[in-house]
Design a protein around this nucleic acid. Structure first.
Lengths: 111, 111
DNA sequence: TCGTTTAATCGTATATTTGCGATATAAAAT
DNA sequence: ATTTTATATCGCAAATATACGATTAAACGA
């Protein structure tokens, strides 16, 4: 892969792809569910619930944070994570827009 | 990565992750748009529109097909591709379910 | 039958992802 | 000040993904 071609596409396409990539792993979907299932923001409890090592969970959290899907605030020796609803809603909307766009453009199926 | 841990998660989580992975590349989003933009099923025209080599587009199409998002029927020397609306709708629904699930569980944000 | 056209596949190179153990860091508690 | 606790990060190994050119295959037309 000499050159990355991602830049050749729309910013929206890139953003949406990045979001999809963030949730493109069952572990990260599971992490989001754990985060949502507790009203207070949990951190290391995820490790107890999931069948993954602490370092692996930490890495997944980092990716989710990089994608902007979760927030993290330092709270003593522990870190408080929670879902970034603003970003989440935004991407949910973007997704639906994509779906609708495809649907509108393609009224009749062909094969 | 000695062992794959994907099997350790829910089937729904795996399915959703696989779908997300399929659209986790701007090229594939663009391909879906091209497919939807034509009423008749196009194939090699994608290569003309996208800044990618023929083999690369073929590979992306294969991944989309493996994920079940598009159908392909042989039509002479050319291949007819189009969006699999059934699968697409299903995943759209699954996505919204995930979003709603997260939302319901987490009434009040914390950070 | 032979060439043309279209698409898939092969081979290759490189980048990224995934996972873990080990180590480092940073705040709280003793 | 030192220990404990919770996380992040480093280093490594292996798997996947990405991209391309070259080759193969398959069907149509001359």
């Amino acid at each position: 892969m000499a050159i990355h071609k991602k830049e050749a596409f729309t910013q929206k396409e890139q953003d949406l792809a990045e979001f999809a990539k963030a949730i493109a792993h069952p572990a990260r979907i599971a992490i989001l569910k754990v985060l949502a299932s507790r009203n207070e923001c949990i951190c290391g409890e995820i490790v107890e619930v999931l069948p993954l090592a602490q370092s692996t969970v930490s890495q997944h959290l980092k990716e989710l944070k990089n994608a902007g899907l979760i927030n993290g605030t330092i709270d003593g020796p522990r870190n408080c994570y929670c879902i970034n609803w603003k970003a989440f809603e935004k991407f949910n909307t973007e997704f639906n827009i994509l779906f609708d766009t495809l649907k509108v453009k393609n009224e009749k199926a062909c094969c």
